[in-house]
Amino acid sequence: MNILIILIVISLLVASGFAVAFIWAVKSGQFDDAFTPSVRILWEDGSKSKSIKSQNKSELNNPKS
């Protein structure tokens, strides 16, 4: 049964690894802003704006007033 001690120590070491990883993540600021990245990832670059862009350009060429 004493062999269990080795397993317990290993499990504790693995768990400590996660604890250290968590502390590192907090210290490097990964938890500081949980909202902005979730919005940022949804944007595509450009593709949507192209149609609007060309439309606006034609409007800009003959501005009202």
Binding site: G29, F31, D32
Partner: peptide
């Protein structure tokens, strides 16, 4: 100040949670 004021309590919760989980296991 760029650092979140919550950093300390996050770490405190992390450590306590780590100890809590393992203590329960043992």
């Amino acid at each position: 100040n760029q650092k979140s004021p919550y950093r300390k309590i996050w770490m405190q919760i992390g450590i306590a949670g780590f100890a809590f989980g393992n203590a329960m296991l043992f």
